[in-house]
């Protein structure tokens, strides 16, 4: 097929299909999206101190101490081969 024809067929197919499926996909996701939006926006202020930082209680230098080396203990166990390679 020559290039001109190829482009005509490809774009012609796009035109024939329209973007109806596109719009409905966007609508379907909107519920979930709103929660994400709020969560993300809330991170950009100074009030999000819920990760073990109640100001007065835990404010000691000890939080900075690096006296142990943590080991990953998350879902990485479920990835086979993920910890076998020697670097």
């Amino acid at each position: 097929m020559d290039k001109q024809k190829l482009l005509s067929v490809a774009i012609g197919g796009l035109l024939a299909l329209g973007l109806a499926s596109n719009a409905s996909a966007a609508d379907k996701k909107m519920d979930k999206e709103q929660c994400f939006g709020i969560a993300k926006a809330g991170k950009n202020d100074c009030s999000s101190n819920k990760s073990a930082h109640s100001c007065a209680g835990q404010a000691t230098k000890n939080n900075d101490a690096q006296d142990f080396v943590a080991v990953p203990k998350g879902t990485c166990d479920k990835i086979a081969g993920g910890t076998l390679k020697v670097m």
Binding site: A39, C46, N49, S51, C55, A59, T60, T75
Partner: peptide, 24 residues
């Protein structure tokens, strides 16, 4: 300082939720 680190920790965790779950 503790709050400074706490905020950055939270910002990082929010940008990298998969890394957070992977390593715990």
């Amino acid at each position: 300082r503790n709050n400074y680190c706490g905020n950055l920790h939270d910002a990082l965790a929010s940008a990298y939720p998969v890394i957070y779950q992977l390593v715990g």
